[in-house]
Design a protein around this nucleic acid. Structure first.
Lengths: 203, 203
DNA sequence: CCTCCCATGTAAACTGTTACATGATTTT
DNA sequence: AAAATCATGTAACAGTTTACATGGGAGG
């Protein structure tokens, strides 16, 4: 049900087409909520049918078309209701920690590759999140700036602070995962599993 | 696809019925991979159909029945293949961080309740994970002990270490989330949003 | 006798992934 | 003229949740 709320959150910043939304979901917002285009377009239509959005049809060139979606009052209500309601936590489904618990069954090289892969994965995540934070701090984030344009002066500080706060949380998580994987590398060395041997025996 | 691997990981410890598995998925393993009974029973049957498991039917009382599942060689192969293959990371879908990014839209009490709820949620998680770690350290974890019974002496250290390592990662994550939510509480106080006012003005 | 635990499922709805499919417009 | 980007979707499948449904056995 949160794809809907993510869409509402974005459209509240300003009207957008499905394509614009899609880009957001594969960039900035994608860090907290991912959605592919095949999910976005049908959801937009459903939300419009339910009166949460209205579609403003725009011509594009000779025969091109573009639907720009606006949040209706009902949509605004639905979003605020969600924001003020207790959050439902999904049950964890964490393949990395599942695998980690049974790592003794894997080959030594696979163990090391798994841990290095974990580090790589979260390092990419960390870098992009840190870039977003930088954009927030330097006020060069397009979406945030667009939002700030229609925000009362006294609410700007909070708007910026919460966005930064959210991304700082993501960065902290990424750092935690990297730390954990590094501890894993230390552990396999300690257990004598690592093939650090190959370096220690040249010739 | 990891429900299947979680089931294989558990059944490799020892044969179990769907009911036994279900209990594991709502207790210990549930911390890394949750699955309801309605997902487990059909999956077991599918896996048996595909030759990854065999069902040993046991009578229970007069007409009661119980199917105990065993991992076949094909099942063992499938599990090891997964363990040695690169891990696929799911895209993040994180309602808490999504909400955090737009928290200025929520009522002050709702913001505080959201952050306190986050702390409560992860504190419960942390406590249960720490209990699991304690059981691992004192060798009072039933599943781990069952596994150790059929483990070669030289592999026991690693088996224990990896299980502990996995749970330590979960604990670290929980601590991180709690820390983040506490920072959030500090932030709203700093922004003057918190209704800590009610305490500061008694009468 | 009642309640809790053992034991196994089905059905419907919802959510998400992967692959396919098409065509216009803008930039190089 | 080709490539990138804009723009909108469909179809099939895989995974997950929620609710429903049933009945036996063990212990107080």
């Amino acid at each position: 049900m949160s794809l809907r709320n993510a869409i509402l959150a974005l459209l509240r910043i300003g009207p957008m087409s499905g394509y614009d939304l899609q880009k957001q979901f594969s960039q900035s917002v994608g860090h907290v909520w991912h959605a592919p285009d095949s999910q976005i377009y049908p959801e937009l239509r459903k939300m419009a049918d339910q009166g949460l959005l209205t579609a403003e049809e725009q011509a594009r060139g000779a025969s091109g078309m573009r639907k720009v979606y606006h949040v209706t009052e009902a949509g605004e209500r639905e979003f605020l209701e969600w924001m003020n309601a207790p959050l439902k936590y999904q049950r964890t489904r964490d393949a990395a920690h599942l695998r980690a618990a049974y790592l003794e069954a894997a080959d030594p090289e696979a163990i090391e590759e798994f841990l290095n892969g974990h580090i790589r994965h979260w390092q990419v995540e960390l870098e992009t999140v840190e870039e977003e934070i930088c954009k927030i701090d330097t006020l060069t984030s397009p979406m945030l700036n667009r939002r700030l344009e229609v925000t009362e002066d006294e609410d700007r500080e909070a708007t910026i602070a919460f966005k930064r706060y959210s991304y700082e949380g993501l960065a902290a998580r990424a750092r935690g995962e990297i730390r954990w994987a590094r501890e894993g590398l230390a552990l396999i060395r300690q257990l004598g599993i690592a093939d650090g041997v190959e370096d220690a025996d040249p010739q």
